[in-house]
Simulated scan of single mutants.
Amino acid sequence: MVFDRERCKGCELCVTVCPRKILTLSPGLNSLGFHPAMITDASRCTGCCFCALMCPDVVITVLREEGENAARADEG
Rank of each mutant, 00 (worst) to 15 (best):
G67E: 02
P56W: 06
V62T: 02
S26L: 08
R20C: 08
T40Q: 06
G10H: 07
C8F: 01
F34H: 15
L32H: 07
C45N: 07
V17R: 09
K21V: 11
R5D: 10
T61V: 15
S26Y: 04
A52P: 12
C11N: 02
E12Y: 05
P36V: 03
V2D: 13
P56H: 05
K21H: 14
V62Y: 02
C49N: 13
C8R: 03
G67F: 00
P19R: 09
E66K: 14
R64V: 09
R72K: 13
F50C: 15
V58P: 00
E65A: 12
E68V: 07
E65G: 14
V62S: 07
T61R: 15
D57R: 10
M38A: 11
F50S: 13
C51Q: 03
C45F: 06
P27M: 01
D74M: 10
E66R: 15
V62E: 00
S43K: 13
C55D: 01
E68H: 13
G76F: 15
N69W: 08
G33F: 06
L63H: 15
N69Q: 11
G76H: 06
C49F: 10
V2A: 11
N30T: 01
D41Y: 11
E6M: 06
I60N: 04
A37W: 03
G67D: 02
T40H: 09
C55F: 01
E66S: 15
E66T: 14
G76R: 12
L23Q: 07
M38T: 08
R20K: 15
V15M: 00
E6A: 14
M38Q: 13
E12I: 08
R7V: 02
D4T: 05
T16Q: 13
E65F: 11
M1L: 08
P36G: 05
C14L: 05
R5L: 09
P36C: 00
G33R: 04
M1Y: 10
E6F: 09
A37F: 08
H35V: 07
L23H: 06
M54Q: 08
A71F: 12
V58F: 15
L32C: 07
L63W: 11
R72C: 05
V58Q: 14
C48N: 02
L53S: 13
V62L: 02
L53Y: 14
R20G: 10
L23N: 02
R44C: 07
D57H: 13
D74Q: 15
E75M: 12
I22A: 08
A52V: 00
A71V: 07
P27A: 04
L23S: 08
I22W: 02
S43V: 11
C51I: 03
V58M: 13
P27D: 04
P56V: 05
E65Y: 15
T46W: 09
C49Y: 06
L13F: 08
R7Y: 04
K9S: 02
C48F: 12
E66L: 11
F3E: 03
T24N: 10
V58K: 15
M1C: 05
E65P: 13
T40N: 05
R44Y: 08
S31V: 12
I60P: 06
V62C: 10
T24G: 12
T40V: 06
E12D: 13
S43I: 08
